[in-house]
Amino acid sequence: MILTSMSTVGITALVPPELIFACGHMPLDVNNHVPSSAEHPVSKLCAWTATWREMLLQKRLQVDSLVVVAGGDCHNALADGQRVALGGIPAHFFFYPFDGDTDYMEAQMQRLVLHLGGEVDKAKFREVGLAKELGMRLEQMRIEGRISGADAFRILISFSDLCGDIPAFMEQLVPEKRHEEAKFRVGLIGVPPIYKDFHEVAESFGMHIAYDELPYEFLRLGGNSMAELAKSYAGYTFARSLGYRLDFLERELARRRVDGVIHYTQFACHHLLEDDVLRRRLDYPVLTVQGDMPGSTPEQVKLRLEAFSEMLGRAP
């Protein structure tokens, strides 16, 4: 199916929003609706994908088409995306190159453009780029501890779809809360927590989240031409080899001067298998937490965060 008129295009993970806007459509990151969802999917592995699957199939989330990121990132999305497609919602499957091949990336992007109608308004690349430049300034303020991690996360996580409206989104790029001095700086790696208040809970235990791994990818990748976009998005760390991702992580964690690392893992997500490797390689105290269903941060996760904060306080 080829989209013609202006449509809402659901995305299941990072899909260059530049392309969706440039083709005249509105991206909608279905994941952004999961943490506050009350869905209880009957058949599930990962609650992230199962929840958006149910929301789409039950029409509680309306999209005209769904772009499923199936290669190199979320494996559960491949199955749940197909179930959505079988339920009658047009779906396009988008694959990242594991080896960073920019030709492959550009070919995937061209296929996506065809699905989106084939007409590209390159001025939109620049518009999204300007929003990301502004986002980068806010990210720098977070690194310097001038805005809270919760505030930064709220802004960064929305860079996957820019809320479907670039000018309106840019007007929202204002930090809400004044940052209070935290005892420790931590990096949050892995998929984003499925809990809607995770950053606030971490802050309540004296931890400033100075890095959100995946949302930062949403912000840092981009470009002003198809070739630039292909080169940039081919470096999407979550779709690349673990070694590539670890090299990147080490640089970011050092740049942000973190005292410790929280590795968030999602029940039934293949990224959980990477935990041992990450713990061995990263030269920081690492707390691994595992989440399952969306909602508020449960007590057993709060206990781990509190104990981690106490532990950082005991570190030599």
Binding site: P285, V286, L287, T288, Q290, Q300, R304, A307, M311, A315
Partner: peptide, 18 residues
């Protein structure tokens, strides 16, 4: 309700409570 393993050498811990 859970089992906690605390490694005092590197100040890390694991919990099993699922």
């Amino acid at each position: 309700q859970d089992t906690k393993v605390i490694d005092l050498r590197n100040n890390t811990f694991l919990l099993n409570d699922k």
